[in-house]
Amino acid sequence: MSRAIRFVPTLFQVCLLAAFWLGADALARAVGSPVPGGVLALAALLALLLLGWLDANRLRRGAEWLMAEMLLFFIPPVVAVVQFQALFRSEGLKLLAVIGLGTLCVMAGTALVVDRVFRWEHRRRIRGIARRRRESLA
């Protein structure tokens, strides 16, 4: 019972986030926005947080619950594979190959790019700090 009571604020915050999304989605549809409502709402909420007009703690529990249970929300579309059985029987192995090879490709490429860029940015930052220190001493 106490667990149910503790869930009330979380549920309220989830409802607030849902209302935020509904509003942005309706707006995006009404004006024919090329940016979907979800991303508009995300940007608007982030702006409110960064400007300090809204405290992140007021929505944190709801947001964390939504992100933690996200898998539950996309199980239903995954069950739709039952509709595509014939397709998977003919293309299943190819699909697995595309996803497997593609994922390895993203992993290797991203890791190498980020490793290089990070070393460059890190050196630049260190040099910047050292220069500022010299200048303040001079």
Binding site: L17, L45, L66
Partner: peptide, 25 residues
Amino acid sequence: YMADARWLMWMLGPTTVAFAIPIHD
């Protein structure tokens, strides 16, 4: 199966918005 289960999928919308919190943090 999907007639009611689609409400779970609907929750992906609000979940998009929730990602503003970790970006901010």
